[in-house]
Design a binder for these strands. Structure first.
Lengths: 385, 385
DNA sequence: GCTCGTTACTTCCGTGTTAGAACTAAACCA
DNA sequence: TGGTTTAGTTCTAACACGGAAGTAACGAGC
């Protein structure tokens, strides 16, 4: 519906706005006349607005930056895990308006769709123009091809959610969605390539190269989890010693400390103990930090991308042992190579749902039709009611 | 000089030709009228020709495939190592016409340029339209920014070679050039993404994602070489035990077998001994094969690209222990993931020079001017004389 | 306080690229 | 011999783009 240039303009303003036309010309490689022509329909329809950004002191005519109209629409994002739904409402830039975790009672597609609809409605955010859903597994064209933790195969899940909520639903793999969020609105904004590593219940991995998330059949499989990182660590459920899963997942870290202390401790308590100086917890956290550094180093070495975004609910160990992580990266990296830029997304679980919302936002941009209808980003009135 | 569509057409015919206009429409996303219009100037100037590909049995009007005019031009490719020049002459599709290795006597830029010019002329191939030069190090815009093995810093080497030979010279990092060759004319043709791993005097690594070679400041540094692959192997010159360099380079393999046999053997002899069943050589080769498999598995896991091209002068060990390599890959890979497609370029040293020639070919395509001059791909008469 | 320079943006218009519709070309087939 | 199928061409209208020139809105300097 949008031409390539129109879509590029919409994305650039969404990601980098407020932004002047003159900066857009260099960023998009278009001439000033083209910018005027392209921006007009967006302004006419009220999708974009011109800000009155009065003189900043420099000479010349002041800029009239373009921005997305405030309050244009809201979006919902839902990450499905085996036990719960993590649900967010965001604005058009994926800024959080509300976040909630609700337990998941049913596992069948129709039941999950119903619970998603209830949870999104319960956020109490109006004017939701789209909902994004992400989960671990293989996803294509709105269908869940394969989701092991729910035991789903070839489920047309987007249309189920769409039918329940009455707004367009978008479906994506959870790691691809997270990578998209970091690329558009997150820590990776403006960086052409980076790896995304998440630690939590499992190890997640995604990759951005040349400003594009690598979509691969591989994305749903969790290949990063079994990279060998040490020879002394515990054994993961697949039988590898010292692999990423064994060294870094919350469960494995908690189990190691529990064994050392002879009492059950959970991951959060491990971090508290380590921060308080408990030697057993500190040792495990230090080992994990070294393993994380090795994983980052291998990933950036083999992808040729000298930047990494760390995220996930288990990333709390990073602040406790940042020096160890950086030392391990440096040890596995050629000193002539660029230093690795590390970005840590400490938002935990909500980062996943924010990723899902980003997918909904991206799809909404692609649905804009400048030649028809009313407020294109918004659903029919009362759809969520 | 060429528009985007013209360049896309030229590249598609070069890479996939002979190819019909109708197949080009779907490949380039253009309409039949556009194909007619775009192809005409190429045909008029004699750069492309229509083949008389008589009826293939199917119904309908027979196709008139487009192809590059036979014998349109030749290209030279030169790979510089510390001790020698590897020089090839090729046709426009980087098919080898001649190959020669000549020892390098001088190390200064002007001297190397002179020896390159002599070596290219000595090939005795006429109508050379461009020369490509590749070497290990950081390269940009025809300048060698940094080449440790020659001790060069910021040398405008392309213009030196151009002045010596009188034909356009192109300069590129050796691994990027090799990856470009595999992508356009080699084993990776038609595959959207793959990793390139070379073994020989060193370990080389390059990456193709979304049909594009990843150009990175990192490319010249050799980051793949110190990936840890085993705990039992020898120690590399940087002090890592069991890293890719220690396990896989020709020198390290020869040294291990020499130590075991108490006499000096070179890499070629190691392969002969291993093939003949010598236990010491076979053990070292098997260990190397396992390490190679681990390296491939890690690279494909972390780049999300389920294909790998293996090349380099040390790849002779692959046929001897292919099963070990594949077993090692499978062991480090999730069984749910796609099987890794392995391509082995056994052309040894000439693959490097062919990569350099590919860079010259790519640059020649970009130099085509349909609105001026005579035979654009060819240099002024007698330039090489 | 007027002009001048500077930067931002717009209007006008010519150019070049694109694809739809209709057409021609060249085969097989009944 | 005429219908069917596939390939490719011609004609033409739409349109996206940028160059040239014009307008807008500021600060600076006299």
């Amino acid at each position: 519906m949008l031409s390539d240039s129109e879509r590029a303009l919409a994305r650039a303003v969404l990601i980098h706005g407020p932004i002047s036309r003159s900066e857009l010309t260099s960023r998009l490689g278009l001439s000033p006349p083209s910018l005027t022509r392209l921006a007009k329909p967006f302004l006419d329809r009220g999708l974009l607005v011109e800000l009155d950004d009065r003189s900043d002191g420099s000479v010349g005519r002041p800029v009239r930056p373009l921005d997305v109209r405030p309050g244009l629409a809201h979006f919902a994002g839902v990450k499905i895990t085996g036990e719960a739904l993590h649900v967010v409402a965001t604005d058009v830039r994926a800024e959080l308006l509300a976040y909630q975790e609700v337990p998941l009672h049913r596992r069948d597609p129709a039941g999950v769709a119903t619970e998603i609809a209830d949870a999104v409605r319960a956020l109490g955010v109006d004017r939701i123009a789209g909902v994004g859903v992400s989960l671990g597994g293989a996803v294509r064209d709105g269908r869940v091809e394969f989701a092991p933790f729910l035991d789903w195969t070839d489920v047309p899940f987007a249309q189920l959610v769409e039918a329940e909520l009455g707004v367009p639903a978008s479906l994506e793999n959870d790691l691809v969605a997270l990578a998209e969020a970091e690329r558009w609105f997150g820590l990776g904004r403006g960086i052409p390539g980076f790896v995304v590593i998440t630690i939590g219940a499992g190890i997640g991995y995604a990759l951005v190269v040349n400003g594009q998330v690598v979509h691969s059949r591989e994305a749903g499989v969790g290949l990063g989890g079994h990279i060998p990182l040490g020879t002394t660590g515990p054994v993961c459920h697949a039988g590898h010693r010292g692999c990423a899963e064994a060294m870094l997942t919350s469960g494995s870290i908690a189990a190691q400390v529990s064994a050392a202390l002879q009492r059950p401790v959970d991951h959060a308590e491990v971090l508290r103990l380590a921060a308080a100086g408990d030697p057993a917890a500190a040792t495990v956290v230090d080992e994990a930090a070294t393993a994380l550094g090795r994983l980052v180093a291998m990933a950036v070495n083999l992808t040729l991308q000298p930047a990494a975004v760390l995220a996930g609910e288990g990333i709390g160990l990073f602040p406790l042992a940042e020096e160890r992580v950086r030392a391990a990266i440096a040890a596995d990296r050629d000193p002539r190579a660029e230093p690795v830029r590390l970005f840590v997304d400490e938002s935990g679980f909500s980062a996943w749902a924010r990723g899902a919302a980003t997918i909904a936002i991206q799809d909404a941009v692609d649905r804009i039709d400048l030649h028809r209808g009313e407020q294109e980003l918004l659903p029919t009135r009362g759809a969520l009611a």
